[in-house]
Amino acid sequence: MSKVILVTGCSTGLGISIAVQAAQAGHIVYATMRNLTKRDALDSAASDAGVSLNVLALDVQSTESVNAAVDQVITDHGRIDVLINNAGAGYVRTTEQATEEEINWVMDVNFNGVVRGTKAVMPHMRKARSGHVITVSSVGGLVGQPFNEIYCAAKFAVEGYTEALASYAGPAFGIHFSVVEPGGIATEFAANVMKQVEATGGMLDDEYLPLLQTYVAGAQNRAADGLYQTADEVAEVILDVMNAEKPPIRKRTSEWAEGFASHKTSGDPDGKKGQKLIQTFFMGADT
């Protein structure tokens, strides 16, 4: 059955792959981005794949923008079956160097943006007693990493937010909640690390400099060694989660990501065990 899918962050990389693959599978896809002047790559990918996409403006940092996009989909189809919270941004900078403005921006894009999107679709999914909210997290939402403490904090927040919703709104209203946790995307990761560092003032000449240089070199080496996935590979996992009869609460996207986070996830790989325990403890539900 064709689903109505809303995807955020579709101007580049993973968002494009998700939108195109979902359309190829026969779904009705609304691909969104903050700035529609940056839609060329999306349009080109859709044309190459021979699919049609509905493209809307959606800025996850604006409640009005999020609500307007959701309202448009509801006007067109009367439902949203799947929200894929893909929009996000990396941030590599130690706490001492980060400005308060940058910290607030990272949290707003990566966490508050997820909340805005989820909040906007929830009334419609609750009324329908069905739906699926899938959020692109990261192994950084499970394991804190050097120079990524602000980004990891945002992704840890996403993980807790999703777990909490899954513990009561899921069983009560038939809505599924999932986080997908890539370990890195080859086409973007290493380049974006350096791009983001340069955009926030470059490598500052202080005591952190040799540590940051070691971190960046490691990221570049891992990308060169092929440890990261392509955007298409990660998108395939996301669609598998979407199509699952009993979707996981969390899902890593590669063997490397699985191994990297195994000390946190080996006892409950898909999060279902924890969901059942929390439901039973707080809600008295043993289902």
Rank of each mutant, 00 (worst) to 15 (best):
D206T: 15
L227K: 08
A153N: 07
E207G: 05
D205R: 00
Y215W: 06
H176Q: 15
G218R: 03
E188G: 00
I185H: 08
G160R: 10
E188H: 00
A217T: 07
L204Q: 14
P171Y: 12
F177D: 04
I150S: 00
F177A: 05
A199T: 11
A157Y: 06
G184P: 04
A153G: 15
E207W: 05
A217P: 01
P210R: 01
F156N: 05
A219V: 10
I185V: 14
F189V: 11
G201R: 03
Y151C: 01
A190N: 06
A169Y: 13
N221Q: 14
T187N: 11
A157I: 09
T187S: 14
G202P: 06
F156V: 08
T214C: 01
A190Y: 04
I175V: 12
Y168M: 03
A164L: 15
G183H: 02
A169D: 12
A172L: 12
E159R: 11
G184V: 04
R222N: 13
V197Y: 01
E163T: 15
H176D: 15
P210S: 03
C152W: 10
M194Q: 11
A224I: 08
G226E: 05
L165Q: 10
A166E: 03
F177W: 05
D205W: 00
V158I: 13
E188V: 01
V179Q: 09
A191Q: 12
Y208M: 06
C152P: 08
M194V: 05
L212A: 09
V179I: 15
H176S: 15
V158D: 12
F177L: 07
D225L: 13
Y168P: 00
A154W: 07
L212S: 05
L212G: 06
E159C: 07
G218L: 04
I150V: 06
G202M: 10
Y161K: 10
G218V: 05
V216H: 07
G226H: 02
F189K: 07
N221W: 06
P171T: 14
E181R: 07
A199G: 13
G174R: 09
S178P: 02
K155L: 00
P210W: 02
G201Q: 02
I175H: 03
G202N: 11
D206I: 14
